[in-house]
Each structure stands twice: as structure tokens, then as C-alpha cells.
């Protein structure tokens, strides 16, 4: 590894090390009153990391490739259901199910991509067709017996490393962090590869890229497949964390929104954007809930979400290129 290469990965390694060391700071965070207890921290962080992973997946096709999807639920849900159904119906081990869930998610991504890109759908049209696919999946998952239909699928609670169910919350935190770390590095690899350059070229000007000899269809297909596979892992982890999926959880619009919201807020088409966005958004939501609850009680529902929505608008107003853009401008000065 040359020094230039190392320099490119240094911030990522530092960030991963910092996240990995975060549990050491938990007593301080709890002491400062930021978290009610250590497990409150872990539980929130695990959810943030799962959303980060879903958002990192979205960012590959949406951020680098400019293919805005409103339907990443299709991939998240496939991963979530695969992880649950493979274990409960086919007796597959959780650790074996996870790569299969990832592959199935990728396959769904490739199929939707093939249909959409062959039809030359771009921009809002691509966004809406992905949304429609996610809805079709949701309706089917709610009606077919293999997914448990409307009753959903419950993974039996059997704590043990072999079942990917951990007694210590820190263990799941590190598992989720490992996946996020791999994708952070993967994203940087992508940025520095020829494929990554083509992908950005497609985003900036697809016609020009094609004129220069880039096989744009293949580039986009690879991107959406990879994107879907990463988001499917997020779904599989969700299943392992909560041990229950139904159609609205797995294929619901909520996750499509989370997956695209985090990168846009954090910094679209950047390595750290999804992570920063997920931390900011979910952190903000929790903070609003805690502060409003402490200040006004919980007698009137929804006030914390009103504050959250307003803050969201304000953040966008003051951070044109996402939060990462804000950090960079400040750092540059």
C-alpha cells in the first residue's frame, strides 16, 4: 500500500476506530445525561448502524450513480424476510442465511434494475418505478403463506453466537459496525476504481458517458445490484435484532425514506454521508423526544415530531451540500 493510498483510507480507519472505541465513552455519555443507561446507547446505536447500512446501499446507486430510488424497501425487505424465512422454514443457520439474504437482495436489485434501465427510466421515473415495485412486494408479502402472510415471521428467541443472537448488546453493536466499516472501505475503493469513475460519469451526464464508450447499462446494473445487496444486509440485521418481520416493517415506505434521507442529509455521494446523516437524523429524533418530554411532559402527542420536522427543514436550509459539506467548509476556513 503506497502512502497515497493509505492517506485516502486514513479518515475511514480513524472513523472506524473512533466508533469501535465509542463504548469506552459510554460511561461518560451516561454520566453527562445524554443516555439514560449504557444499553439505551447500544440499542440506539445498533438501530443507527442498521439504517446507516441501508443508506450506504442507497448511496451507491443514488449518491454515486445518480439513480434516485424511492423503493429501497424492496431490497431491505427481501433481506429481512430471507433472513427470517430461511431460518424458520428451512432451518438454515443465521450466519449462512445472512449471505444468502444479501445475494437475494442483490438479485432483486438486478431484476428491477434490468427492467427499469432497459426501459431507459431516469430521474423521477426511475424513482417512482422503484416505489411501485416496493409496494408490489409489500402487498404480495402480506398475502403469501411463505412469508407468514399478515401474521409475519417470528424468529425464535435463542440467545447464542451460533444463532447470531447476543446476550451483550455490545456484541450486536460490533457486528453492525463491522458491516458498516466494510462498506465504508468498499465505498472508498469504489470511488478510486474505474467502475466508480464510470458511475459518477453516468450521474453527471449519461449521454456523454455513453458517447465516450462507457457501457452505461452495465454500469448502472452493477451499481443497483451492489446497492441492493448492501441494503438487504441491513434488512437481515434488522431481523436478527428484532426477531420479527411483517410486510409493513420489511417492505414499508418508512425504510425507503430513511435510506434516502440519511445520505441526502449527510452528504450525497460521499463515503461518510450516510453515516453522518443517520447519526444526525435518528439522534435528532431521539433528542427532540427526550428534550420535549422533559420540558413539557408527554401529554400532547406529536410535539417532538413537529420540532424534529422543523429542525430537518432548518438543517437543509443551512447545509446545502449535506452536513458533510458544512463540516468541510468550516474545516477549510
Amino acid at each position: 500500500m503506497s502512502s497515497g493510498t493509505f492517506a485516502a483510507y486514513r479518515p475511514i480507519l480513524i472513523a472506524i476506530a473512533a466508533l469501535a472505541a465509542l463504548p469506552l465513552a459510554v460511561p461518560l455519555l451516561v454520566g453527562a445525561g445524554l443516555f439514560a443507561g449504557p444499553n439505551t446507547f447500544y440499542n440506539l446505536m445498533i438501530f443507527i448502524l442498521i439504517i446507516t447500512l441501508a443508506a450506504q446501499g442507497w448511496n451507491i446507486a443514488g449518491g454515486y450513480g445518480g439513480q434516485f430510488s424511492f423503493g429501497h424497501a424492496a431490497f431491505f425487505g427481501t433481506g429481512a424476510y430471507a433472513q427470517a424465512v430461511l431460518q424458520t422454514r428451512y432451518g438454515v443457520n443465521a450466519w449462512v442465511a445472512l449471505p444468502l439474504a444479501m445475494a437475494l437482495g442483490g438479485l432483486v436489485g438486478a431484476l428491477i434494475g434490468l427492467l427499469a434501465f432497459r426501459a431507459r427510466l431516469r430521474g423521477s421515473y426511475f424513482a417512482l418505478v422503484t416505489l411501485a415495485f416496493a409496494e408490489v412486494f409489500r402487498i404480495l408479502a402480506n398475502a403469501t403463506p411463505i412469508t407468514g402472510g399478515a401474521a409475519g415471521t417470528l424468529v425464535p428467541l435463542r440467545i447464542g453466537f451460533g444463532q447470531m443472537q447476543f446476550d451483550a448488546p455490545a456484541a450486536f453493536f460490533y457486528l453492525a459496525l463491522a458491516f458498516v466499516a466494510v462498506v465504508l472501505i468498499l465505498n472508498r475503493l469504489l470511488e478510486r476504481s474505474r467502475f466508480g469513475a464510470w458511475l459518477v460519469a453516468v450521474r453527471e451526464n449519461e449521454d456523454a458517458a455513453r458517447a465516450l464508450g462507457v457501457d452505461t447499462l452495465t454500469v448502472k446494473l452493477k451499481a443497483i445490484t451492489l446497492s441492493a445487496a448492501v441494503t438487504a444486509v441491513a434488512g437481515a440485521l434488522y431481523t436478527q435484532k428484532f426477531l420479527y418481520v411483517d410486510a409493513n416493517i420489511a417492505y414499508g415506505a418508512w425504510i425507503s425514506v430513511e435510506a434516502l434521507l440519511a445520505p441526502i442529509v449527510g452528504g450525497i455521494g460521499t463515503v461518510f454521508g450516510p453515516l453522518i446523516g443517520a447519526v444526525a437524523l435518528i439522534g435528532l429524533g431521539e433528542a427532540a423526544k427526550t428534550v420535549i418530554h422533559a420540558a413539557f411532559g408527554s401529554a400532547v402527542p406529536g410535539v417532538d415530531l413537529v420540532v424534529y420536522g422543523l429542525l430537518l427543514v432548518v438543517v437543509i436550509a443551512f447545509a446545502p451540500r449535506g452536513l458533510i459539506g458544512l463540516l468541510r467548509t468550516r474545516g477549510g476556513r
Binding site: L260, L261, G302, V306, G309, L312, V314
Partner: peptide, 23 residues
Amino acid sequence: ASRNDDGAILLVTLGLSIVLENL
């Protein structure tokens, strides 16, 4: 708030929908 940027408009309108619904 959005400076007429597509991604930002998306987020602003999403933020507004959260505000309106919960208000």
C-alpha cells in the same frame, strides 16, 4: 430553504409533511 435543489426540496417537503401531520 431548498435553493430549488432537487434533493433539498425532497427533504424540505418531507420535513413539512412531518410538521403538518404532527401539528
